[in-house]
Design a binder for these strands. Structure first.
Lengths: 178, 178
DNA sequence: ATAACTATTGAGAACTATTCTCAATTATAC
DNA sequence: GTATAATTGAGAATAGTTCTCAATAGTTAT
């Protein structure tokens, strides 16, 4: 049986309709999947899952819908360094579910953490104000994310310099270093 | 005349050699460009600039070199949401030049800021320790970045929901809303 | 220096996530 | 119901990045 939906359908519909946009089965399917199936889905994953309940859904539509939702602020899009965008239901900094990400640069596992969220959010808000004042930007959002090696991947670990977000040193050389 | 180099060639060479890797003119060219020509260069930009001083440089080599440098921690790679990776000389959290980014989601202008850097770094370090303890990750780095509209782009602004990092609402509809 | 070993290179093909095109469909307002 | 314009699916197109492979050239041992 399907998991419960985490989003308020009415609220979503209102937001969508607000712009002269339309409620369609395709959009419903995408929203439902995103809300039921935990987090961090790639477009492809959303597509697969949503296709099950709306079989002739097209991949392009999924991309379009995800873009729309992102622009409307209902979904947030982020990337973990593996060249695939990930999407998850957006929750404002004040929402209970608000979290940040800790990602493994090797296997791309993502951990949601809430530790220090309050301090982080506070600091971010302060910084945001300062930056707005100083540089005249109208700040819309922020990214804050830690990267490293998860316990499993750290096992066959290897040193990796500071600033590297691309994971382990891949050995691109041809021969065996023996 | 070329700007001064910001990197210590000896240190870099040592780092590269450390892994059985070689110093080559191509790598020198890439490093020099990155160090002389400010920040935030795309691979293409590095390629163009480096080609001037090493004419038969190949684009693939630039990518390979940038990847290597990133893995070695000498360069940091980040993206601003325009589907092109950006590279800049890496400076550890303690270095004078350490900064974070404020990017315009519309024109992709990037502002380096140092305000609150100290507080941010402090908090990040604390969080990092906590996360390491709690989740067993070996944390290698972090991303912290603000996105919004620069003064110029905010001019012809438009509302954009929280969480949207992709810029203004693009109107994908066919007809005129009149 | 010279030779041997193997990392690196350039060029272009290949790859892949994402966007675009367009005719057909369908949600919405009247 | 009808009209209107937003949306859709399918596949083509795009673009940044990676891969392949034979040729080249750092590096180390001699």
């Amino acid at each position: 049986m399907p998991k419960r939906k985490d989003h308020d359908p009415d609220c979503c519909c209102r937001k969508i309709r607000g712009q002269g946009r339309r409620i369609t089965p395709a959009r419903h399917a995408v929203l439902d999947v995103l809300s039921e199936r935990g987090e961090h889905l790639t477009a492809e994953e959303v597509f697969k899952a949503a296709s099950r309940r709306y079989p002739n859904l097209g991949l392009a539509t999924v991309y379009r819908t995800l873009e729309l939702m992102t622009d409307l602020g209902m979904v947030s899009k982020f990337d973990t360094g593996d060249d695939k965008a990930r999407y998850e239901f957006a929750e404002g900094p004040s929402a209970k579910g608000h979290h940040h990400h800790l990602v493994c640069t090797s296997c791309h596992k993502i951990v949601d953490y809430k530790d220090f969220i309050k301090e982080e959010t506070q600091l971010l808000r302060r910084t945001e104000q300062e930056l707005t004042k100083k540089y005249g930007f109208r700040i819309i959002g922020h990214v804050i994310q830690f990267c490293g090696l998860c316990p499993a991947c750290a096992g066959r670990g290897q040193k990796s310099g500071w600033g590297s977000r691309e994971g382990l040193l891949k050995d691109t050389r041809r021969g065996q270093s023996k």
